[in-house]
């Protein structure tokens, strides 16, 4: 059950442009991979919470990965041990772990957050997975790629060619998908999701049905009442669903990608 928690920050690890904030959480805080927490980001006239996917759930702790995107995340990124965070969570619909065939996880930038948690959970359950993580340059997230490579099979894609595959995460993913051809899980910028959805639809007609994407939308309430975080869906035509409560994870064939493209 989701609840409101005042949690102590007990650790902070800086990874280049992003910081992991590790918080002490009670046992009843049981997030599923893909779920998020809605975090109050200080005063100064900032009245709305900011959503962050759960990045990790350890022994007595849970963490989020914060990349500065505005004033709220900038405030949050500066928190550390001794600070407390006011969070609601875990919220939303996470990833469906039941799947046939291989599992390919495709991350763009800070979109690695929910996929790292997913990868850890899959490995704990004895499943295997392959992670394609795209970023601008190899140093962007500091040593985080090395940390994650120790946990799972992580392949990098760098747009500037400074490490791993030279190109986008989607290009890399489509090469890797030939080998796995199972469930594809993705989180990243909308452009990345659009490109991935288009490529998967090209590969086979059922491509979108084996894609699960976690969408990033601006949210107000986080619990489904304000209808602020609207995501265009295929059925019924013209309708929207709420990223916070119907998502943030949607199956590729649930979304209306034409209207998604029109939003960018």
């Amino acid at each position: 059950m989701p609840a409101r928690y005042l949690v102590a920050v007990v650790g902070r690890r800086d990874y280049g442009c992003a910081s992991e904030l590790v918080c002490e959480v009670p046992d009843d805080f049981r997030p599923h991979p893909g779920q998020f927490v809605h975090v109050a980001c200080g005063g100064d006239g900032r009245i709305l919470r900011r959503p962050f996917s759960v990045f990790d759930r350890g022994e007595g702790t849970a963490s989020i990965l914060v990349r500065e995107a505005g004033e709220g995340s900038s405030w949050l990124k500066r928190r550390g041990p001794g600070d407390r965070l006011d969070i609601l969570g875990p919220l939303g619909r996470g990833f469906d772990l039941c799947a046939e065939g291989g599992r390919l996880l495709v991350a763009g930038g800070a979109g690695i957050a929910p996929l790292r948690f997913l990868a850890k959970r899959l490995l704990e359950e004895g499943e295997t997975c392959l992670v394609a993580w795209g970023m601008g340059e190899a140093a962007e997230y500091g040593v985080l790629p090395d940390v994650l490579k120790k946990e799972a099979d992580v392949r990098l894609a760098c747009l500037d060619g400074s490490g791993g595959h030279a190109g986008s995460a989607v290009d890399l993913a489509m090469q890797l998908d030939r080998e796995s051809a199972g469930q594809v899980y993705a989180c990243g910028p909308r452009e990345m999701l659009l490109s991935l959805a288009a490529r998967m639809e090209e590969v086979d007609r059922e491509g979108l049905a084996r894609l699960q994407v976690s969408v990033e939308e601006r949210m107000a309430c986080g619990v489904g009442v304000c209808r602020g975080c609207a995501v265009p869906v295929a059925e019924p035509p013209g309708a929207y669903r709420a990223a916070c409560s119907d998502g943030p994870v949607f199956r590729g064939d649930e979304l209306d990608w034409m209207r998604m493209a029109a939003l960018t």
Binding site: I47, M219, Y240
Partner: peptide, 15 residues
């Protein structure tokens, strides 16, 4: 169906 997103935006002490 409502309006196309984005539908919310935070402003100082408001939205």
């Amino acid at each position: 169906a409502g309006n196309p997103p984005p539908r919310v935006w935070e402003t100082p002490s408001g939205m």
